[in-house]
Design a binder for these strands. Structure first.
Lengths: 190, 190
DNA sequence: AAAGGTAGCCATACACCGTATGGCTCACGC
DNA sequence: GCGTGAGCCATACGGTGTATGGCTACCTTT
């Protein structure tokens, strides 16, 4: 079917998106260009468009697959405080694997906006455990996700001090603040 | 001095940066281009470079002046909880004035990184009031700023529900969580 | 076997971007 | 009068995403 002149086999979306992910890891969304990507794959730039509708669609595809790959802690019957900590750590871990990608996702939060994502379901489950009433679930999970995302974002942008262990301490403090905050909010005032 | 052929008076950085801010408000950093800006000012694109070193420098200038214009609540001897709430509201207010600009600042946090900024001094003062020990000040202020920034960011990107008052409720919950969290963390465990 | 369809690839071109280079004009100080 | 420099601009370079249309090699249908 008129395979590339220079390459043996035809292109595939897997090949394209994994190369694109490599480029994004190296130089962010701006470091990824269709021309550079084509060069990487030894192909004419326009050939890519036979497998991908546009650069945006390609990036979105990468975001979606990366998001789907995120590993979340299962319900282990631990206290909600510990489960919340575990979730935050998993989220942090996931962000550090592909920082540029993660930053892009949180600047174009279509991917994260899907409330049926496991992330939201796990978070909701933990918040129910913590005693958050049903009517407050959506708002509370939004706020907590924004909190953790904000912290991770500032870390990825080098806004936090870089001494060894400082990031872990910051994340620990963040989780502790959130846990104490939840304990305070879900308890009768006083 | 060879003023523009089409315009009467020479350009000025104020004129340039205010027009640039207008473009950024309309279409984000990507909506601002030197060519569009020049067209807006009825000038040749290259003329801008007599007043501004580069597009990046221009954007940074705009960020800096906008940041300098931020109005922060003064110390009114209110309880730290209320002062923290007032600070968060002021920050939120400031962000909503120029969303695109604010987003850009928080993606290139050079501007916000200057610890001598009034924002950080006010925040530190309030946290001292709240009983945060000196050694924890930097970390705590970083985390809290990241929290609030994260929430504002998710709001600006339309991640929060748009029902009337919902944003205020989310911000209120965020502040309450933070306050309760601080109360819990600065108090002996139990 | 001939005809048609289509998957895959690519050459060319367009409109946009930031900006390097160098030259023009005019107001000023000497 | 004359140099200097501020302000402006024409041109050009290398980059971007992608629309258009044409080429080839395969597959299916007849």
């Amino acid at each position: 079917m008129a395979v590339s002149a220079r390459r043996g086999a035809p292109l595939s979306i897997e090949e394209i998106s994994s190369a694109a992910l490599r480029l994004m890891d190296a130089g962010g969304v701006e470091g990824l260009s269709m021309r550079k990507l084509a060069a990487e794959l030894d192909v004419n730039p326009m050939s890519l468009y036979h497998h991908v509708a546009s650069k945006d669609a390609l990036v979105e595809l990468i975001c979606a697959t990366a998001t789907a790959r995120m590993r979340l802690p299962a319900d282990d019957d631990a206290p909600w405080q510990e489960q919340l900590r575990a979730l935050a750590l998993a989220y942090h871990q996931y962000a550090r694997q592909h920082p540029a990608l993660w930053i892009h996702i949180h600047n174009n939060p279509r991917v994260i906006a899907d409330r049926t994502m496991p992330l939201w379901q796990v978070l909701d489950r933990i918040l129910r455990l913590a005693g958050v009433p049903e009517g407050e679930l959506r708002r509370t999970s939004d706020v907590l996700h924004a909190f953790v995302s904000g912290l991770i974002l500032s870390e990825l942008q080098g806004h936090l001090p870089e001494e060894a262990g400082e990031i872990e301490r910051s994340l620990g403090l963040a989780v502790e603040l959130i846990v104490r905050g939840l304990e305070g909010v879900t308890r009768p005032r006083g």
